[in-house]
Design a protein around this nucleic acid. Structure first.
Lengths: 259, 259
DNA sequence: TGCATCATGAGCGATTTTTATCATAATTCA
DNA sequence: TGAATTATGATAAAAATCGCTCATGATGCA
Protein backbone atom coordinates (compact mmCIF):
# COMPACT_ATOMS: atom_id res chain seq x y z
CA UNK A 1 0.00 0.00 0.00
CA UNK A 2 2.34 2.69 -1.13
CA UNK A 3 -0.44 5.15 -1.74
CA UNK A 4 -0.88 5.61 1.96
CA UNK A 5 2.74 6.63 2.21
CA UNK A 6 2.17 9.22 -0.46
CA UNK A 7 -0.88 10.59 1.26
CA UNK A 8 1.07 10.84 4.43
CA UNK A 9 3.73 12.79 2.56
CA UNK A 10 1.13 15.24 1.39
CA UNK A 11 -0.18 15.74 4.88
CA UNK A 12 3.36 16.19 6.15
CA UNK A 13 4.04 18.75 3.47
CA UNK A 14 1.00 20.70 4.62
CA UNK A 15 2.64 21.04 7.98
CA UNK A 16 5.03 23.52 6.42
CA UNK A 17 3.02 24.94 3.58
CA UNK A 18 -0.66 25.66 4.11
CA UNK A 19 -1.39 24.91 0.48
CA UNK A 20 -0.07 22.57 -2.17
CA UNK A 21 -1.18 22.55 -5.78
CA UNK A 22 -1.98 19.41 -7.69
CA UNK A 23 0.77 20.20 -10.15
CA UNK A 24 3.37 20.69 -7.48
CA UNK A 25 2.46 17.45 -5.77
CA UNK A 26 2.48 15.72 -9.11
CA UNK A 27 6.07 16.72 -9.73
CA UNK A 28 7.21 16.29 -6.18
CA UNK A 29 5.75 12.81 -5.79
CA UNK A 30 6.44 11.68 -9.33
CA UNK A 31 2.95 10.51 -10.06
CA UNK A 32 0.23 11.61 -12.39
CA UNK A 33 -2.30 14.31 -11.70
CA UNK A 34 -5.04 11.73 -11.49
CA UNK A 35 -3.29 9.93 -8.68
CA UNK A 36 -2.68 13.12 -6.83
CA UNK A 37 -6.34 13.96 -7.10
CA UNK A 38 -7.34 10.57 -5.82
CA UNK A 39 -4.99 11.03 -2.91
CA UNK A 40 -6.43 14.41 -2.18
CA UNK A 41 -9.92 12.98 -2.31
CA UNK A 42 -9.03 10.43 0.30
CA UNK A 43 -7.30 12.92 2.50
CA UNK A 44 -10.29 15.17 2.26
CA UNK A 45 -12.72 12.39 3.10
CA UNK A 46 -10.51 11.40 5.96
CA UNK A 47 -10.72 15.00 7.17
CA UNK A 48 -6.99 15.51 7.54
CA UNK A 49 -6.92 18.34 5.05
CA UNK A 50 -9.24 20.26 2.82
CA UNK A 51 -9.65 19.82 -0.88
CA UNK A 52 -9.78 23.12 -2.71
CA UNK A 53 -9.80 24.08 -6.34
CA UNK A 54 -6.28 23.71 -7.61
CA UNK A 55 -4.91 21.55 -4.86
CA UNK A 56 -5.18 20.87 -1.18
CA UNK A 57 -5.18 23.18 1.81
CA UNK A 58 -4.27 22.50 5.38
CA UNK A 59 -6.88 23.07 8.02
CA UNK A 60 -4.74 24.98 10.41
CA UNK A 61 -4.99 24.15 14.07
CA UNK A 62 -5.88 27.75 14.75
CA UNK A 63 -8.87 27.52 12.49
CA UNK A 64 -10.58 24.76 14.38
CA UNK A 65 -9.97 26.61 17.58
CA UNK A 66 -11.18 29.94 16.38
CA UNK A 67 -14.34 28.52 14.95
CA UNK A 68 -15.08 26.92 18.29
CA UNK A 69 -15.10 30.13 20.27
CA UNK A 70 -16.14 33.07 18.24
CA UNK A 71 -13.68 35.81 17.59
CA UNK A 72 -15.62 39.02 17.94
CA UNK A 73 -13.28 41.16 15.93
CA UNK A 74 -13.29 39.10 12.80
CA UNK A 75 -16.91 38.10 12.92
CA UNK A 76 -18.13 41.61 13.26
CA UNK A 77 -16.15 42.45 10.20
CA UNK A 78 -18.48 40.64 7.89
CA UNK A 79 -21.79 41.74 9.33
CA UNK A 80 -23.26 44.98 8.26
CA UNK A 81 -20.17 46.14 6.43
CA UNK A 82 -22.12 48.67 4.44
CA UNK A 83 -23.71 50.14 7.51
CA UNK A 84 -20.42 50.33 9.32
CA UNK A 85 -18.73 52.01 6.43
CA UNK A 86 -21.49 54.57 6.20
CA UNK A 87 -21.31 55.17 9.93
CA UNK A 88 -17.59 55.62 9.77
CA UNK A 89 -17.97 57.97 6.85
CA UNK A 90 -20.37 60.17 8.77
CA UNK A 91 -18.16 60.07 11.83
CA UNK A 92 -15.21 61.19 9.75
CA UNK A 93 -17.10 64.30 8.71
CA UNK A 94 -17.42 65.24 12.36
CA UNK A 95 -13.66 65.48 12.66
CA UNK A 96 -12.14 68.84 11.81
CA UNK A 97 -8.71 69.39 10.47
CA UNK A 98 -6.30 69.81 13.33
CA UNK A 99 -8.49 67.92 15.79
CA UNK A 100 -7.10 65.55 18.33
CA UNK A 101 -9.25 62.44 18.49
CA UNK A 102 -9.22 59.13 20.27
CA UNK A 103 -10.31 56.08 18.30
CA UNK A 104 -11.06 53.00 20.33
CA UNK A 105 -10.67 49.39 19.24
CA UNK A 106 -13.38 47.58 17.32
CA UNK A 107 -14.28 47.07 13.73
CA UNK A 108 -16.42 50.13 13.15
CA UNK A 109 -13.81 52.34 14.73
CA UNK A 110 -11.26 50.69 12.53
CA UNK A 111 -13.14 51.92 9.50
CA UNK A 112 -13.17 55.40 10.94
CA UNK A 113 -9.45 55.27 11.54
CA UNK A 114 -8.90 54.30 7.93
CA UNK A 115 -10.88 57.27 6.74
CA UNK A 116 -8.81 59.57 8.91
CA UNK A 117 -5.54 58.04 7.78
CA UNK A 118 -4.47 60.87 5.52
CA UNK A 119 -6.26 63.67 7.28
CA UNK A 120 -4.50 66.37 9.19
CA UNK A 121 -5.45 65.09 12.61
CA UNK A 122 -3.78 63.88 15.74
CA UNK A 123 -5.07 60.41 16.43
CA UNK A 124 -4.73 58.23 19.49
CA UNK A 125 -5.69 54.58 19.48
CA UNK A 126 -5.42 51.49 21.61
CA UNK A 127 -6.28 49.24 18.70
CA UNK A 128 -3.36 47.21 17.47
CA UNK A 129 -4.84 46.51 14.03
CA UNK A 130 -5.57 50.18 13.51
CA UNK A 131 -2.15 51.23 14.68
CA UNK A 132 -0.57 48.73 12.33
CA UNK A 133 -2.67 49.96 9.49
CA UNK A 134 -1.98 53.63 10.08
CA UNK A 135 1.67 52.90 10.49
CA UNK A 136 1.71 51.35 7.06
CA UNK A 137 -0.72 53.47 5.11
CA UNK A 138 -1.42 56.65 6.98
CA UNK A 139 0.00 60.12 7.08
CA UNK A 140 -1.75 61.45 10.14
CA UNK A 141 -0.06 62.01 13.44
CA UNK A 142 -0.49 58.80 15.38
CA UNK A 143 -0.11 58.15 19.07
CA UNK A 144 -0.30 54.58 20.23
CA UNK A 145 -1.38 53.40 23.63
CA UNK A 146 1.36 51.70 25.59
CA UNK A 147 1.05 48.50 27.53
CA UNK A 148 0.37 44.89 27.16
CA UNK A 149 -1.27 43.56 24.04
CA UNK A 150 -4.39 41.60 24.81
CA UNK A 151 -4.80 39.29 21.92
CA UNK A 152 -8.46 38.64 22.27
CA UNK A 153 -9.80 42.09 21.58
CA UNK A 154 -6.45 43.01 20.03
CA UNK A 155 -6.20 46.04 22.22
CA UNK A 156 -3.27 47.53 24.07
CA UNK A 157 -3.88 48.35 27.68
CA UNK A 158 -1.75 49.13 30.66
CA UNK A 159 -3.23 49.42 34.14
CA UNK A 160 -0.27 51.55 35.21
CA UNK A 161 0.22 54.07 32.46
CA UNK A 162 -2.85 56.17 31.98
CA UNK A 163 -2.75 57.67 28.49
CA UNK A 164 -1.43 61.22 28.41
CA UNK A 165 -3.49 62.17 25.41
CA UNK A 166 -6.30 64.67 25.50
CA UNK A 167 -8.75 64.88 22.68
CA UNK A 168 -11.81 66.81 21.70
CA UNK A 169 -13.61 63.68 20.58
CA UNK A 170 -13.57 60.08 21.69
CA UNK A 171 -14.95 57.64 19.16
CA UNK A 172 -15.85 54.18 20.32
CA UNK A 173 -17.98 51.25 19.38
CA UNK A 174 -19.80 48.93 21.72
CA UNK A 175 -20.62 45.30 21.97
CA UNK A 176 -24.17 46.20 22.81
CA UNK A 177 -26.25 49.13 23.97
CA UNK A 178 -28.95 48.92 26.59
CA UNK A 179 -30.97 51.31 28.72
CA UNK A 180 -28.13 51.54 31.20
CA UNK A 181 -25.48 52.40 28.67
CA UNK A 182 -22.73 50.88 26.60
CA UNK A 183 -22.01 47.21 27.15
CA UNK A 184 -18.82 45.26 26.69
CA UNK A 185 -18.12 41.61 27.23
CA UNK A 186 -14.48 42.15 28.14
CA UNK A 187 -13.74 43.83 31.48
CA UNK A 188 -10.50 45.06 30.05
CA UNK A 189 -12.33 47.12 27.48
CA UNK A 190 -14.44 48.64 30.20
CA UNK A 191 -11.42 49.92 32.08
CA UNK A 192 -9.85 51.22 28.92
CA UNK A 193 -13.01 53.00 27.85
CA UNK A 194 -13.52 54.60 31.22
CA UNK A 195 -9.99 55.96 31.25
CA UNK A 196 -10.13 57.29 27.74
CA UNK A 197 -13.52 58.86 28.27
CA UNK A 198 -11.98 61.03 30.94
CA UNK A 199 -9.44 62.38 28.49
CA UNK A 200 -11.90 63.74 25.98
CA UNK A 201 -14.51 66.48 25.78
CA UNK A 202 -17.06 64.66 23.70
CA UNK A 203 -17.99 61.00 23.49
CA UNK A 204 -19.32 59.70 20.21
CA UNK A 205 -20.54 56.14 19.85
CA UNK A 206 -20.44 54.30 16.55
CA UNK A 207 -22.95 51.47 16.55
CA UNK A 208 -25.00 49.88 13.83
CA UNK A 209 -28.61 49.30 14.79
CA UNK A 210 -27.98 45.64 15.48
CA UNK A 211 -26.15 46.63 18.61
CA UNK A 212 -29.30 47.81 20.33
CA UNK A 213 -30.55 44.26 20.65
CA UNK A 214 -27.32 42.79 21.94
CA UNK A 215 -26.70 42.35 25.62
CA UNK A 216 -23.26 42.01 27.11
CA UNK A 217 -22.10 41.56 30.65
CA UNK A 218 -20.31 44.71 31.64
CA UNK A 219 -21.41 48.30 31.59
CA UNK A 220 -18.67 50.59 30.32
CA UNK A 221 -20.34 53.98 30.15
CA UNK A 222 -23.80 55.18 31.14
CA UNK A 223 -25.84 56.79 28.41
CA UNK A 224 -25.65 60.08 30.25
CA UNK A 225 -21.97 60.28 29.42
CA UNK A 226 -22.55 59.80 25.72
CA UNK A 227 -22.86 62.89 23.58
CA UNK A 228 -23.80 61.37 20.25
CA UNK A 229 -24.60 58.06 18.69
CA UNK A 230 -24.06 57.40 15.01
CA UNK A 231 -26.06 54.49 13.71
CA UNK A 232 -27.89 53.29 10.60
CA UNK A 233 -31.52 53.67 9.57
CA UNK A 234 -32.47 50.36 11.09
CA UNK A 235 -32.76 51.99 14.49
CA UNK A 236 -35.98 51.01 16.23
CA UNK A 237 -38.30 53.65 17.64
CA UNK A 238 -37.86 52.17 21.05
CA UNK A 239 -34.11 52.51 20.89
CA UNK A 240 -34.43 56.03 19.55
CA UNK A 241 -36.65 57.04 22.45
CA UNK A 242 -34.23 55.48 24.86
CA UNK A 243 -31.42 57.60 23.49
CA UNK A 244 -33.49 60.77 23.39
CA UNK A 245 -34.55 60.33 26.97
CA UNK A 246 -30.92 60.10 27.96
CA UNK A 247 -30.15 63.28 26.06
CA UNK A 248 -28.06 61.58 23.42
CA UNK A 249 -27.91 63.14 19.95
CA UNK A 250 -28.75 60.65 17.19
CA UNK A 251 -27.10 60.72 13.80
CA UNK A 252 -28.33 58.39 11.10
CA UNK A 253 -25.89 57.32 8.41
CA UNK A 254 -27.62 56.10 5.28
CA UNK A 255 -25.79 53.39 3.48
CA UNK A 256 -25.87 54.93 0.04
CA UNK A 257 -26.16 58.32 1.55
CA UNK A 258 -22.62 59.49 1.81
CA UNK A 259 -21.54 61.97 -0.77
CA UNK B 1 -8.49 53.97 0.20
CA UNK B 2 -11.23 51.52 1.00
CA UNK B 3 -9.63 48.78 -1.03
CA UNK B 4 -6.90 48.60 1.55
CA UNK B 5 -9.51 47.76 4.13
CA UNK B 6 -10.75 44.95 1.97
CA UNK B 7 -7.29 43.58 1.49
CA UNK B 8 -6.80 43.69 5.20
CA UNK B 9 -10.01 41.78 5.65
CA UNK B 10 -8.68 39.10 3.39
CA UNK B 11 -5.47 38.87 5.35
CA UNK B 12 -7.40 38.75 8.58
CA UNK B 13 -9.54 35.98 7.24
CA UNK B 14 -6.43 34.02 6.43
CA UNK B 15 -5.49 34.07 10.07
CA UNK B 16 -8.31 31.61 10.62
CA UNK B 17 -8.54 29.78 7.35
CA UNK B 18 -5.36 28.96 5.51
CA UNK B 19 -7.13 29.26 2.19
CA UNK B 20 -9.89 31.39 0.75
CA UNK B 21 -11.32 31.00 -2.72
CA UNK B 22 -11.98 33.87 -5.03
CA UNK B 23 -15.63 32.99 -5.12
CA UNK B 24 -15.97 32.95 -1.39
CA UNK B 25 -14.23 36.28 -1.00
CA UNK B 26 -16.37 37.70 -3.75
CA UNK B 27 -19.55 36.87 -1.88
CA UNK B 28 -18.18 37.70 1.50
CA UNK B 29 -16.85 41.10 0.54
CA UNK B 30 -19.62 41.96 -1.86
CA UNK B 31 -17.39 42.86 -4.78
CA UNK B 32 -16.75 41.38 -8.18
CA UNK B 33 -14.33 38.59 -8.89
CA UNK B 34 -12.11 41.01 -10.76
CA UNK B 35 -11.72 43.16 -7.70
CA UNK B 36 -11.00 40.19 -5.52
CA UNK B 37 -8.31 39.09 -7.95
CA UNK B 38 -6.75 42.51 -7.97
CA UNK B 39 -6.74 42.50 -4.21
CA UNK B 40 -5.13 39.11 -4.17
CA UNK B 41 -2.55 40.31 -6.66
CA UNK B 42 -1.60 43.17 -4.40
CA UNK B 43 -1.50 41.03 -1.32
CA UNK B 44 0.68 38.59 -3.16
CA UNK B 45 3.06 41.28 -4.36
CA UNK B 46 3.18 42.70 -0.89
CA UNK B 47 4.07 39.22 0.28
CA UNK B 48 1.46 38.99 3.00
CA UNK B 49 -0.15 35.95 1.46
CA UNK B 50 0.26 33.71 -1.52
CA UNK B 51 -1.79 33.70 -4.66
CA UNK B 52 -2.75 30.24 -5.76
CA UNK B 53 -5.00 28.85 -8.40
CA UNK B 54 -8.53 29.34 -7.22
CA UNK B 55 -7.88 31.82 -4.47
CA UNK B 56 -5.37 32.91 -1.90
CA UNK B 57 -3.41 30.95 0.65
CA UNK B 58 -1.82 32.01 3.88
CA UNK B 59 1.86 31.51 4.15
CA UNK B 60 3.83 29.95 6.92
CA UNK B 61 5.08 32.27 9.61
CA UNK B 62 8.69 31.72 8.75
CA UNK B 63 8.38 32.61 5.11
CA UNK B 64 6.15 35.55 5.75
CA UNK B 65 8.97 37.26 7.54
CA UNK B 66 11.37 37.78 4.73
CA UNK B 67 8.80 38.96 2.27
CA UNK B 68 6.08 40.69 4.19
CA UNK B 69 7.93 42.73 6.67
CA UNK B 70 11.32 43.19 5.21
CA UNK B 71 9.80 45.91 3.07
CA UNK B 72 9.79 48.72 5.63
CA UNK B 73 13.53 48.50 5.77
CA UNK B 74 14.13 48.80 2.09
CA UNK B 75 17.65 50.05 2.19
CA UNK B 76 18.84 47.47 4.59
CA UNK B 77 16.94 44.61 3.13
CA UNK B 78 19.20 43.47 0.37
CA UNK B 79 22.31 43.91 2.41
CA UNK B 80 23.48 41.09 4.52
CA UNK B 81 20.11 39.40 4.98
CA UNK B 82 21.73 36.08 5.60
CA UNK B 83 24.07 37.56 8.13
CA UNK B 84 21.24 39.30 9.93
CA UNK B 85 19.18 36.18 10.06
CA UNK B 86 22.08 34.21 11.46
CA UNK B 87 22.72 36.93 14.01
CA UNK B 88 19.10 36.93 15.05
CA UNK B 89 19.17 33.16 15.29
CA UNK B 90 22.11 33.23 17.64
CA UNK B 91 20.56 35.99 19.68
CA UNK B 92 17.40 33.96 20.07
CA UNK B 93 19.38 31.16 21.66
CA UNK B 94 20.51 33.59 24.35
CA UNK B 95 16.93 34.07 25.47
CA UNK B 96 15.65 31.63 28.06
CA UNK B 97 12.08 30.55 28.50
CA UNK B 98 10.35 32.91 30.87
CA UNK B 99 12.74 35.76 30.20
CA UNK B 100 11.63 39.32 29.92
CA UNK B 101 13.41 41.00 27.04
CA UNK B 102 13.38 44.34 25.29
CA UNK B 103 13.72 44.33 21.53
CA UNK B 104 14.51 47.65 19.94
CA UNK B 105 13.54 48.83 16.48
CA UNK B 106 15.60 48.03 13.42
CA UNK B 107 15.72 45.28 10.89
CA UNK B 108 18.03 42.88 12.67
CA UNK B 109 16.06 43.17 15.85
CA UNK B 110 12.92 42.56 13.85
CA UNK B 111 14.28 39.22 12.82
CA UNK B 112 15.01 38.42 16.43
CA UNK B 113 11.49 39.34 17.43
CA UNK B 114 10.10 37.01 14.80
CA UNK B 115 12.14 34.15 16.15
CA UNK B 116 10.78 34.80 19.62
CA UNK B 117 7.20 35.08 18.43
CA UNK B 118 6.02 31.74 19.73
CA UNK B 119 8.42 31.42 22.61
CA UNK B 120 7.39 31.63 26.20
CA UNK B 121 8.84 35.09 26.80
CA UNK B 122 7.68 38.52 27.82
CA UNK B 123 8.71 40.88 25.11
CA UNK B 124 8.74 44.66 25.03
CA UNK B 125 9.29 46.61 21.87
CA UNK B 126 9.08 50.13 20.53
CA UNK B 127 9.11 48.91 16.96
CA UNK B 128 5.81 49.32 15.21
CA UNK B 129 6.50 46.74 12.49
CA UNK B 130 7.53 44.19 15.07
CA UNK B 131 4.51 44.90 17.24
CA UNK B 132 2.25 44.52 14.23
CA UNK B 133 3.87 41.27 13.28
CA UNK B 134 3.72 39.80 16.76
CA UNK B 135 0.16 40.91 17.11
CA UNK B 136 -0.72 38.95 14.01
CA UNK B 137 1.55 35.95 14.17
CA UNK B 138 2.90 35.63 17.65
CA UNK B 139 1.88 33.91 20.84
CA UNK B 140 4.34 35.49 23.23
CA UNK B 141 3.39 38.05 25.82
CA UNK B 142 3.85 41.40 24.14
CA UNK B 143 4.13 44.82 25.66
CA UNK B 144 4.16 47.76 23.33
CA UNK B 145 5.76 51.12 23.97
CA UNK B 146 3.27 53.95 24.14
CA UNK B 147 3.61 57.30 22.52
CA UNK B 148 3.85 58.97 19.20
CA UNK B 149 4.70 56.97 16.12
CA UNK B 150 7.69 58.39 14.32
CA UNK B 151 7.23 57.24 10.79
CA UNK B 152 10.77 57.46 9.65
CA UNK B 153 12.37 54.90 11.94
CA UNK B 154 8.88 53.41 12.54
CA UNK B 155 9.39 53.59 16.25
CA UNK B 156 7.05 54.57 19.03
CA UNK B 157 8.43 57.02 21.51
CA UNK B 158 7.01 59.23 24.18
CA UNK B 159 9.17 61.78 26.00
CA UNK B 160 6.72 61.74 28.92
CA UNK B 161 5.99 58.11 29.59
CA UNK B 162 9.09 56.24 30.45
CA UNK B 163 8.51 52.54 29.81
CA UNK B 164 7.58 50.60 32.94
CA UNK B 165 9.10 47.40 31.70
CA UNK B 166 12.14 45.78 33.22
CA UNK B 167 14.02 43.11 31.38
CA UNK B 168 17.01 40.90 31.81
CA UNK B 169 18.21 41.58 28.29
CA UNK B 170 18.00 44.53 25.96
CA UNK B 171 18.59 43.70 22.32
CA UNK B 172 19.31 46.52 19.93
CA UNK B 173 20.88 47.20 16.62
CA UNK B 174 22.88 50.23 15.64
CA UNK B 175 23.31 52.44 12.65
CA UNK B 176 27.04 52.29 13.12
CA UNK B 177 29.63 51.35 15.71
CA UNK B 178 32.72 53.36 16.42
CA UNK B 179 35.39 53.52 19.12
CA UNK B 180 33.12 55.69 21.22
CA UNK B 181 30.16 53.39 21.07
CA UNK B 182 26.89 52.85 19.27
CA UNK B 183 25.89 55.46 16.72
CA UNK B 184 22.49 56.51 15.52
CA UNK B 185 21.50 59.10 12.97
CA UNK B 186 18.20 59.91 14.63
CA UNK B 187 18.30 61.76 17.97
CA UNK B 188 14.99 60.17 18.85
CA UNK B 189 16.52 56.74 18.76
CA UNK B 190 19.26 57.91 21.05
CA UNK B 191 16.83 59.01 23.72
CA UNK B 192 14.82 55.84 23.39
CA UNK B 193 17.88 53.64 23.62
CA UNK B 194 19.22 55.44 26.65
CA UNK B 195 15.94 55.04 28.48
CA UNK B 196 15.51 51.40 27.63
CA UNK B 197 19.09 50.61 28.52
CA UNK B 198 18.35 51.72 32.05
CA UNK B 199 15.54 49.19 32.36
CA UNK B 200 17.61 46.14 31.61
CA UNK B 201 20.39 44.16 33.19
CA UNK B 202 22.30 43.23 30.08
CA UNK B 203 22.76 45.03 26.80
CA UNK B 204 23.28 42.95 23.69
CA UNK B 205 24.01 44.56 20.35
CA UNK B 206 23.07 42.92 17.08
CA UNK B 207 25.20 44.29 14.28
CA UNK B 208 26.50 42.78 11.09
CA UNK B 209 30.12 43.51 10.43
CA UNK B 210 29.30 46.23 7.93
CA UNK B 211 28.21 48.40 10.80
CA UNK B 212 31.74 48.82 12.06
CA UNK B 213 32.64 50.98 9.09
CA UNK B 214 29.59 53.20 9.24
CA UNK B 215 29.67 56.51 11.02
CA UNK B 216 26.55 58.27 12.23
CA UNK B 217 26.08 61.53 14.03
CA UNK B 218 24.86 60.72 17.47
CA UNK B 219 26.28 58.53 20.15
CA UNK B 220 23.62 56.46 21.87
CA UNK B 221 25.59 54.22 24.21
CA UNK B 222 29.29 54.02 25.02
CA UNK B 223 30.92 50.67 24.43
CA UNK B 224 31.45 50.33 28.14
CA UNK B 225 27.73 49.88 28.63
CA UNK B 226 27.51 47.07 26.10
CA UNK B 227 27.76 43.54 27.40
CA UNK B 228 27.84 41.56 24.17
CA UNK B 229 27.96 42.11 20.46
CA UNK B 230 26.63 39.52 18.04
CA UNK B 231 28.00 39.92 14.56
CA UNK B 232 29.06 37.89 11.54
CA UNK B 233 32.42 36.46 10.57
CA UNK B 234 33.29 39.49 8.49
CA UNK B 235 34.43 41.30 11.60
CA UNK B 236 37.80 42.96 11.10
CA UNK B 237 40.64 42.39 13.54
CA UNK B 238 40.73 46.06 14.27
CA UNK B 239 37.05 46.12 15.22
CA UNK B 240 37.47 42.99 17.28
CA UNK B 241 40.34 44.58 19.23
CA UNK B 242 38.27 47.68 19.75
CA UNK B 243 35.48 45.63 21.32
CA UNK B 244 37.82 43.54 23.40
CA UNK B 245 39.51 46.62 24.80
CA UNK B 246 36.14 47.90 25.88
CA UNK B 247 35.37 44.61 27.60
CA UNK B 248 32.63 43.62 25.19
CA UNK B 249 31.99 39.93 24.62
CA UNK B 250 31.98 39.00 20.94
CA UNK B 251 29.69 36.35 19.47
CA UNK B 252 30.12 35.33 15.85
CA UNK B 253 27.08 33.99 14.00
CA UNK B 254 27.98 31.94 10.97
CA UNK B 255 25.52 32.20 8.14
CA UNK B 256 25.15 28.50 7.47
CA UNK B 257 25.43 27.83 11.16
CA UNK B 258 22.29 25.96 11.98
CA UNK B 259 18.87 26.62 10.53
C1' DT C 1 -3.16 -20.84 -13.61
C1' DG C 2 -7.25 -18.07 -13.54
C1' DC C 3 -9.75 -14.44 -11.64
C1' DA C 4 -10.75 -10.52 -8.92
C1' DT C 5 -9.09 -6.39 -6.92
C1' DC C 6 -6.62 -2.31 -6.91
C1' DA C 7 -3.49 1.35 -8.12
C1' DT C 8 -2.20 3.97 -11.83
C1' DG C 9 -2.02 6.72 -16.10
C1' DA C 10 -4.12 8.72 -20.24
C1' DG C 11 -7.74 10.96 -22.79
C1' DC C 12 -11.73 13.91 -23.21
C1' DG C 13 -15.45 16.98 -22.49
C1' DA C 14 -17.29 20.14 -19.04
C1' DT C 15 -16.47 23.45 -15.77
C1' DT C 16 -13.82 26.93 -13.64
C1' DT C 17 -10.42 30.16 -13.30
C1' DT C 18 -7.33 33.47 -15.24
C1' DT C 19 -5.73 37.12 -18.02
C1' DA C 20 -6.32 41.02 -20.74
C1' DT C 21 -8.98 44.74 -22.36
C1' DC C 22 -12.42 48.14 -22.25
C1' DA C 23 -15.88 51.16 -20.18
C1' DT C 24 -17.67 53.41 -16.25
C1' DA C 25 -17.77 55.67 -11.63
C1' DA C 26 -15.13 57.75 -7.98
C1' DT C 27 -11.33 60.36 -6.34
C1' DT C 28 -7.41 63.48 -6.50
C1' DC C 29 -5.07 67.34 -7.83
C1' DA C 30 -3.87 71.51 -9.92
C1' DT D 1 -13.91 73.32 -12.46
C1' DG D 2 -11.60 69.95 -15.58
C1' DA D 3 -8.05 66.53 -16.29
C1' DA D 4 -5.56 62.76 -14.49
C1' DT D 5 -5.50 58.97 -11.61
C1' DT D 6 -7.61 55.22 -9.44
C1' DA D 7 -11.04 51.74 -8.34
C1' DT D 8 -14.37 48.88 -10.11
C1' DG D 9 -17.27 45.93 -13.07
C1' DA D 10 -18.08 43.44 -17.43
C1' DT D 11 -16.69 40.66 -21.23
C1' DA D 12 -14.40 37.26 -24.01
C1' DA D 13 -10.58 34.44 -25.13
C1' DA D 14 -7.08 31.42 -23.19
C1' DA D 15 -5.45 28.31 -19.81
C1' DA D 16 -6.04 25.24 -16.16
C1' DT D 17 -8.50 22.06 -13.54
C1' DC D 18 -12.03 18.52 -12.57
C1' DG D 19 -14.59 14.39 -12.99
C1' DC D 20 -15.31 10.65 -15.70
C1' DT D 21 -14.24 6.53 -18.30
C1' DC D 22 -11.23 3.15 -20.03
C1' DA D 23 -6.93 0.47 -20.51
C1' DT D 24 -2.87 -1.36 -18.37
C1' DG D 25 -0.17 -3.65 -15.08
C1' DA D 26 0.59 -5.39 -10.54
C1' DT D 27 -0.89 -7.94 -6.58
C1' DG D 28 -3.44 -11.34 -3.95
C1' DC D 29 -6.03 -15.47 -3.46
C1' DA D 30 -8.33 -19.88 -4.39
Amino acid sequence: MSDLVRQRQIVELLRDRPFASVRELQERLGVSAATVRRDIDKIDEQGTARKVYGGVSALDGASSVSTAYARPYDENRDLAVEAKRAIAELAATMVQDGDAVIVNGGSTCFHLGVKLADRNVRLFTNSMPLAAFLSDHGKCSLTVAGGELHREPRVIYSPQNVPQFYASKFFLGAQGIGPDGLLESHPLMVRSIVELSQNSDQIIVLADSRKFSIHARNLSLPLSRVGSVITDDGLSDQAARMLENAGVAIHIARAGGLQ
